[in-house]
Amino acid sequence: MTYKQISDLPQEIRDQLPEHCQQIFCAAFNAAQSDGLSEEGARDVAWNSVRNEYEQGKDGKWHRKAEDSAIHHKAITTGGN
């Protein structure tokens, strides 16, 4: 089962997650399903995708994680022969 749009997501997910998280969840779930994962496996992938960008605060709401500039602006060097 894939979700054509975020309004097709289960109500419990729509109630918990802000719209951007719902979009991430939906896209990740659908991609995992098309790769042959079970519904449960696709749901796990989708939640992990949400957790990559967001975290649940003490208030129970999901908030975007602060960018770690050391990770996002890391220089890549190549090895020599």
Rank of each mutant, 00 (worst) to 15 (best):
T2Q: 14
D44M: 10
E53G: 01
S7Q: 15
T77Y: 09
Q33I: 14
D15H: 10
P10E: 05
E40C: 04
G41T: 02
G60Y: 04
K58Y: 11
G79W: 11
E12C: 13
E67H: 05
N81E: 04
R64F: 07
R43Y: 06
D35Y: 08
K65F: 02
K4V: 04
I71H: 09
D44G: 08
Q33T: 15
L37I: 01
G57N: 11
S49C: 12
K61N: 10
I76Y: 13
I71F: 07
I6L: 13
I13S: 12
N48E: 12
A27Y: 04
I71S: 08
A70T: 08
G57W: 10
N52Y: 14
S49N: 09
S69I: 05
Q16N: 08
E19K: 09
E55K: 00
A66S: 15
S34I: 11
H20N: 09
Q56K: 15
Y3M: 10
A31L: 05
A32S: 14
H63S: 13
G80H: 03
T78P: 05
A75R: 11
A66M: 10
S34Q: 15
A31C: 00
E19W: 05
H63F: 13
G36L: 10
T78G: 07
R43Q: 05
E40H: 07
S49W: 05
V50M: 02
A32R: 03
L17N: 00
P18G: 04
S34F: 12
R14L: 11
G60L: 05
D44I: 02
